[in-house]
Simulated scan of single mutants.
Amino acid sequence: MSDEADAVREFAARIGVPGLVDVHTHFMPERVLTKVWEYFDAVGPMTGVAWPITYRLEEDRRIALLREFGVLGFTSMIYPHKPGMAEWLNRWGAEFAARVEGCLRTATFYPEPGAETYVREAVESGTRIFKAHLQVGAYDPNASELDRVWGLLAEAGIPVVTHCGSGPMPGKFTGPGPMGELLERHPRLRLVVAHMGMPEYADFMDLAERYPEVRLDTTMAFTDFSERMAPFPTEELGRLGQLGERVLLGSDFPNIPYGYLHQLESLERLGLGDEWLRAVCYGNGARLFGL
């Protein structure tokens, strides 16, 4: 086991949890992940900030690393950028979860004819979590093709990790406005706001306070990398502490420009206490998914 893995396990032991539940990790078909890595390689010229992939490794090694870190539950966040992708990504996600212990079966969708049908099939066949990426997909979450999809997921109580904040670059349909409109129609939707809604942190915490099934994941938030671009407002730390039962650990592994341990240390240095850390890093996810 590596020094890094030892340090991650020591963190878990120090705060008093048996391991970690990470709701925002990416495993994808190889050719899709290669395209994603190419995108991140080009992010530097677009944002002025380089984004080196720390864990640019073969799939088996990435899976083994999460196990060495003591991650007890993780996801294969998949997402389409055009019509015709979601259904075959869902088939891949089902096969991946079936062969990889600890992976919560993950699926996705896109506003297209037939979306309700393949989402219903995914739900009925055991999907545990969905991913929606409004920035990459460049679609309106309130598109008519998705209304029955969101309703189905709200009724089933299946969490949907959604990149809906405007970081690292805003999209036409990112920001709290479209999600607020969606939640007005589907108030029981188990929306998990990826990246804490970066950079619109306070606005998405408002939604979490208004809707009891809304959660936020910590992915990349509070890290040195993100604090340079979109610092979390210190005046909101008290509210973040109060929302502790609805904050979930997320990392964006393997597509992060720093080591896995740094996300955990960034949460610890918020100073919100071990009880908050135990809930975020393990308890909330374990309860949500029955682990």
Rank of each mutant, 00 (worst) to 15 (best):
R188K: 14
V160C: 05
G180Q: 06
E213M: 05
G197D: 13
L183K: 08
L182M: 13
L183G: 09
E209Q: 13
E245L: 00
F225H: 14
V214I: 11
E155I: 02
G177W: 09
A208Y: 03
L216T: 02
H186L: 05
P170A: 11
L243T: 11
Y201P: 01
T218V: 12
P159N: 09
R246A: 08
L237T: 09
T223I: 06
G157C: 14
D203V: 00
A230V: 11
G151N: 13
G165H: 00
G171S: 14
S144G: 00
G157Y: 14
V161G: 10
L183Q: 06
T223A: 01
V161E: 01
P231C: 07
G167W: 15
R190S: 09
S166E: 06
R148K: 13
D217P: 04
L182D: 14
V193K: 02
A230E: 05
R148S: 14
T162K: 12
G171C: 03
A230I: 01
F222C: 07
R188L: 10
P159G: 08
F173M: 01
G177E: 15
F222E: 00
P178G: 08
E235G: 13
G180V: 07
S226L: 12
A208D: 04
R148L: 12
W150T: 07
F204P: 06
M169D: 00
C164K: 09
P159T: 10
K172C: 02
S144L: 13
P170K: 01
T174D: 06
L182T: 10
V214C: 07
R188M: 09
R185I: 04
Y211T: 06
G241K: 10
R210W: 00
H195Q: 12
E209T: 09
M229K: 04
E184W: 12
G238C: 09
L207S: 08
V149L: 13
D217E: 13
T223W: 06
P159V: 03
E200C: 06
E155D: 15
L216Q: 04
R148P: 00
